[in-house]
């Protein structure tokens, strides 16, 4: 038995076997089958395959639907949790700018104090010693303090140098610095509450 080469007829065999063919297509195929043993044999094969493959395994649709419902419920909860986490993350992202503002405010304060101190030390009309901020902030530093009258002999340092000497943020009192660090620690703690365990649920890895 030679193999039929009319693929357009073979294409219709599954539809014929399922009873899903009608009209001119059905008539054309029936005419072809009347003269083609190869396609008749293939039709029998297709029918046998439909019998084998058409049997529906028993599945508990109620159980499957319940599983879908449970999964959906978990997903909704996870969505809410992740939305909350995103809000916290947004706050955390904003937090660095708060830190920047705090640091900037500290620096501005330090600069202000340094400039005032610098102006005070530069002023020739104001009598008496003009202690620098560093001197004020470190009263307990042991060792002799350089006497003010010897400074005019050396070249005057610039205002920038004065700022470095003033120490910037380090000019804050210990208590203030500790308070600032506590605030920054609190900000970092906010990042630790990320419900990372829930993220895979939303990534479709359920």
């Amino acid at each position: 038995m030679s193999e039929c080469t009319k693929l357009e007829m073979k294409d219709l065999l599954p539809d014929l076997a399922r009873g899903a063919l009608a009209g001119p297509a059905l008539a054309a195929l029936e005419d072809h089958l009347a003269t083609c043993a190869s396609c008749r044999a293939e039709l029998e094969l297709v029918r046998a395959a439909q019998t084998v493959l058409g049997a529906t395994p028993s599945v508990d649709t109620a159980r499957i639907a319940a599983a879908v419902g449970r999964s959906s419920s978990i997903r909704r909860d996870a969505t809410v949790a992740v939305a909350q986490a995103r809000r916290r993350r947004a706050w955390s992202v904003a937090a660095p700018s708060r830190r920047v503002w705090l640091a900037a405010a500290s620096i501005v304060a330090a600069v202000g104090v340094s400039v005032i101190a610098s102006n005070t030390t530069r002023s020739p009309v104001e009598p008496g010693p003009a202690p620098t901020v560093a001197q004020v902030e470190q009263p307990s530093t042991p060792g002799p303090t350089t006497p003010e009258p010897t400074r005019p002999a050396a070249p005057r340092s610039t205002g920038r140098a004065e700022l470095v000497m003033a120490g910037g943020v380090s000019d804050l009192a210990d208590a203030d610095l500790e308070s600032l660090l506590r605030v920054l620690d609190d900000v970092d703690t906010e990042l630790d509450v990320e419900p990372a365990v829930l993220l895979p649920v939303l990534e479709g890895d359920v």
């Binding site: 058409g54 508990d60 159980r63 999964s71 959906s72």
Partner: peptide
């Protein structure tokens, strides 16, 4: 039913329901 027939024909004999359930859970997820 159709998904289970397909899964069975693909070689999953004993755990058809498990695969079908996973299919729907993933789909709805």
């Amino acid at each position: 039913p159709a998904v289970s027939r397909f899964v069975a024909s693909m070689g999953e004999r004993g755990e058809v329901e498990e695969v079908v359930q996973d299919t729907f859970v993933r789909a709805f997820g």
